[in-house]
Computed example of a mutant assay.
Amino acid sequence: MMAERKHGVPAPPTDSTVHAADWDSRDLSGEQHRRVAFVDVDLTEAVSRGAEFVECTFRNCRFNASTHEETGFINCTFTRTSFFDTTFTRCKFVGSMFDGSTHDLMKVVGGDWSFVGMPGADLRNASFTDVRMREADLTGARFAGAKVRGVDLSGAWLSKADFTRCDLRGSDLSSLDPLGSEVAGAIIDPFQAVTVATNLGLSVTDEG
């Protein structure tokens, strides 16, 4: 059963299909695709800069070892897609949904991933640095041992997420309920400690 988008919003329909294409090492820079279904497409070691995919669907695709800079994947859907060792730098994924995909060694640096849906995603070997992930659906996502540094998680859905041993320094934890998520061994900074304590209903003061 596919994970649902937030509030039950359906995935956008597609108007055309690219099936079983070999886009290995393809340079996608500047390309624009709208409402295209990519099925069984191999994008291994592909590169892109300034490309744009809007309301596209990717099913059983492979982004392995590909690199993308300032590329937009807006309101897209990724189903059973592999992102092994994929790097996204200053990319935009606003409103995109991930379901049954793999993210081993995926690296995300900068960019806007607000409103993405990654419920239950295994992100234990992924890293996110200086990324905007406002109101992202990360319900039940697994970040154990991952790197989530300087990430804006304001308004994110973090219920039942696993942040065990996760490096969260510099991230916005205002939406984190320590009692509703796994946080044992997570690494945070002093400012975040105050936020977490406040979320627990504690009063923090340095007065004698």
Rank of each mutant, 00 (worst) to 15 (best):
S66L: 10
N64C: 07
T67L: 06
V9L: 13
A21S: 12
S16Y: 00
A11M: 07
S48E: 02
M2W: 04
E55P: 00
T67V: 13
T81G: 07
D27M: 05
C61V: 09
F63E: 05
T77I: 06
P13R: 11
F83E: 08
E4D: 10
L43R: 05
S82A: 15
H68E: 06
F63I: 05
G50F: 05
G30K: 11
H7C: 08
T81H: 08
V54A: 05
P12G: 02
R59F: 10
F58E: 01
N60D: 13
C61L: 08
P13S: 12
G50T: 06
S25L: 01
R62L: 09
H68Q: 11
A37R: 15
V47D: 00
R59M: 04
S16Q: 12
T86I: 06
S16M: 07
R26I: 06
F53A: 03
R62W: 06
E45D: 10
R80I: 03
S66R: 07
D22S: 13
N64V: 04
D27I: 09
L43A: 04
E55V: 03
R59V: 15
E52W: 04
A46S: 15
R5I: 04
A37N: 10
R26C: 10
E52V: 11
T14S: 09
V36E: 04
T57R: 14
W23E: 02
V9G: 01
T79A: 11
F38V: 07
M2T: 12
A65S: 14
S66V: 08
P13F: 00
C61S: 04
F63N: 01
T44A: 08
T79E: 14
A11P: 08
T17R: 15
E55M: 08
T86G: 03
M1P: 12
A46V: 02
A21C: 08
L28I: 04
A65Y: 14
R34S: 09
D42T: 06
E4F: 05
F63T: 05
H19E: 12
A65F: 13
G30W: 10
A3D: 09
D42I: 07
E4Y: 04
R35D: 01
E70D: 10
A3H: 11
F78D: 00
T17W: 02
D24Y: 12
T44Y: 07
A11W: 03
R49M: 02
E45M: 05
D15A: 13
D24N: 12
F83M: 06
R59G: 00
C61A: 07
N60W: 11
S29D: 05
F73Y: 15
A65T: 08
R5G: 14
L43E: 00
A37T: 09
F38A: 02
T86E: 08
F78H: 07
A20L: 07
W23Q: 01
V36W: 03
V9Q: 13
M2A: 11
A46F: 07
H33L: 07
K6T: 11
M2R: 15
G50C: 04
Q32D: 00
D15G: 00
A3I: 09
E4R: 14
E4V: 12
A20C: 09
A3R: 12
R49W: 03
G72K: 11
N60V: 01
T17F: 00
F83Q: 06
G30N: 05
S29H: 03
E52M: 11
G8S: 10
V36R: 11
V47Y: 03
T81I: 12
D42A: 09
V47A: 02
T77N: 05
D42F: 02
K6A: 14
D40E: 15
